[in-house]
Amino acid sequence: MSYSEEIIVSKQAVPTFAVVILAIIFGFGLFLVGYDQGHLFSIIQGAEAFDDLFIHELTHDMRHAAGFPCH
């Protein structure tokens, strides 16, 4: 006679893939909100992006409120 048993297995190891993905998101988000001065949009928009400061203006108030140097 066979029987089944269900047990909860705890796996503590943190997946490297998850760490890499989260680290990239951390770096990208921090740069976007805290430091971008047109860099991101300059990839598609060219030098004009450094004058428009689209992301800078969008994140301007949060940048000040979160303590980042702004201007």
Binding site: L58, H60, D61
Partner: peptide
């Protein structure tokens, strides 16, 4: 535009800092 961006920028910054927090919490 700047005021409207407060919540969106909060979500982006929150997600990114949360990612760092999640890594450290897991370890």
């Amino acid at each position: 535009w700047q005021k409207g961006g407060q919540v969106l920028a909060g979500a982006i910054l929150g997600t990114s800092v949360g990612a760092l927090f999640g890594i450290i919490f897991a370890f």
